[in-house]
Design a protein around this nucleic acid. Structure first.
Lengths: 333, 333
DNA sequence: CTTAGCAGTCGAACATAAAGAGTGCTAAAA
DNA sequence: TTTTAGCACTCTTTATGTTCGACTGCTAAG
């Protein structure tokens, strides 16, 4: 794989990302100043195809990058810093918004990312079981409703309401608070389990009627799907690939069955931008799409993962540049 | 408008709802036992068209109901009780799930409705400003975070977190709790406004640094969009009308810009099922869709509105029957 | 090693024809 | 007066053929 082949491949991918049309040897020779004739480029393209980096829709058509071609492009040929001053300013202004809840920061980041890149953006909260409990609070609402608040080290606050069939006293609440904090402070969320239930039951002399519903609801909340955010689903429909009904249908399906995206977002390495290109994905429905994800943190607190989904012909340079910038900015310059 | 015309119109609408193909006089004569020849039906169809109840895609094609036709059908010709025993059992089993938070009930209702009808379903919470405050609680989280909890008479609980730049004392929290409850109990949510802020400021001898952020955040929370739920967006894409790219694009657009649906859901009469048919909607984007909404209540508490969006060729009988049943069931038999 | 030139391939766009479904109208039947 | 059989006419759909243009692949010359 010599240098000239790479330059040509890069030109083809760039051109295809811009036009969404199969790229001909002539257009490359004309528009990119590679100083070779279309015939030479044609020969190189034939070889690139033989190596699997390019595909041809039919015998006499131009070339289209294959998944392998995009992969090489992403790994080796990306333009760095593909982000303008205006965009930087816009991102800065957005991220400076003061937020009270950490979820708001995720929401702002997600929508900003979608606005800048013009792709659909998805976010999930951090994996619950990684978080450690800092404090548990119980607040009596009326006589038969109890709100439980769990503060974690990631700054995410889980709260839930538990309904009872009998009245709860302030004293009970105090005991509960003491025992839960005593037992759980510093522990991961998954420490809320059966053994804990038994321990608490042994410590408190109330009926199971009080503890059972609390444990049940707490377990439900911590096992619950983390928040799932979706921004700019309609943006995709302006892209030429969505002329195909099958593509459009798959897209909606992917977004609607949250598990597909959630799985993908929960894979991937921390501290890194992960790129999944078309057929590289196991899921058949993702074959026409690429997804770029990154775990975002704020002052080293895990805030979950944000992903961008678009056509394989995605503007990887732009997307990755913007993600890198936002990631750096969030983590403190 | 004689009876026979109505029977024929009903047959045409029923047939079109089933097949999504223009309906011919012959198919009506064959499949519905109206005891008239296709020629007679043809004559009636011509008149129905003249009156505006039917449309013809082109000169020699069958007829398609117009918005006016659907309207007459919905107002006068609906089959009652178009819901099977199995469906009733399924709905019952779903609605019996015990829930702790009122939002869960909305979620279950929304997804059940989507599963039974096979249409996309949307829900919004009740209009905030209608609700009355029953209690306000403040809970100190750490030293500089305060959680505010507002209980309303509809059972919806709003909670939010307020961040401070200085430490807050328990004493301050107690004073805040006393003043807020004293001033707000029984008042509507919109009582949280500028005059309240001034009153509280006059009553407490702390700096504005404490009250300002609280009021700001509370106002934000109560003015915030109420929850917006979406179920079964992909179901729509199996319908033949979604072969048209324009229709599909409009659909995604409608769902993505929440305001369109929110506006519609917040219109409409309480205690009633509201039907909006295609061009009847002011919004141009809705011209190909119909929406059926109902305000749902649980034991007379307002839980917001649920709506179904589908093609104009929606199975109105089924949708309305299911809604009526669920509505009755939620409000206690 | 590069490139000009040209034959060959394929898709897109357009025109044409035939088949089929449905209507509207007329005139006969009930 | 109402209903219906029958038929001409209209319009869509599908199939088929044709042309045009954009590319490629290959050969042979530079």
């Amino acid at each position: 794989m010599d240098d000239r082949k790479k330059r040509i491949l890069q030109a083809i991918v760039d051109e295809y990302i811009n036009t969404a049309e199969p790229v001909s040897s002539g257009s490359i020779a004309r528009r990119y100043n590679l100083d070779y004739s279309s015939a030479t480029i044609r020969n190189e393209m034939a070889e690139l195809e033989k190596c699997g980096y390019l595909d041809k829709p039919h015998t006499s058509s131009g070339r289209v990058p294959s998944a392998l071609g995009y992969r090489l492009y992403v790994n080796e040929l990306l333009k760095d810093d593909d982000i303008s001053i205006e965009e930087i300013k816009y991102i800065q202004s957005k991220l400076e918004t003061r937020v009270n809840e950490i979820e708001d920061l995720t929401r702002i980041t997600t929508s900003t990312l979608s606005e800048i890149t013009h792709y659909t953006t998805v976010a999930v909260g951090p994996r619950n079981n990684m978080q450690r409990i800092e404090e548990v609070k119980f607040v009596l609402l009326g006589k038969r409703n109890l709100m439980a608040i769990i503060l974690t080290d990631s700054g995410i606050i889980k709260e839930t309401i538990i309904k009872f069939d009998e009245d709860i006293t302030e004293e009970q609440v105090n005991t509960l608070t003491f025992i839960f904090n005593n037992k759980l402070m510093g522990k991961p969320l998954e420490a809320i389990d059966k053994p804990l239930e038994e321990y608490i039951f042994s410590q408190m002399n109330y009926s199971l009627n009080v503890i059972k519903p609390i444990m049940q609801q707490l377990k439900k909340v911590i096992s619950e799907e983390t928040e799932y955010l979706l921004e700019g689903a309609n943006k995709a429909f302006d892209l030429p690939e969505f002329k195909s009904l099958e593509v459009a249908k798959n897209f909606i399906n992917i977004l609607d069955t949250k598990e597909i995206m959630m799985d993908l977002l929960n894979t991937g390495f921390a501290n890194d931008i992960n790129v999944y290109i078309g057929e590289e994905n196991e899921n058949e429905k993702l074959k026409d799409f690429s997804i770029v994800t990154f775990k975002h943190k704020y002052k080293d607190k895990d805030l979950g993962t944000i992903g961008i989904i678009g056509p394989k012909r995605m503007d990887y340079s732009k997307v990755i540049s913007v993600m890198k910038y936002i990631s750096k900015k969030l983590n403190g310059e």
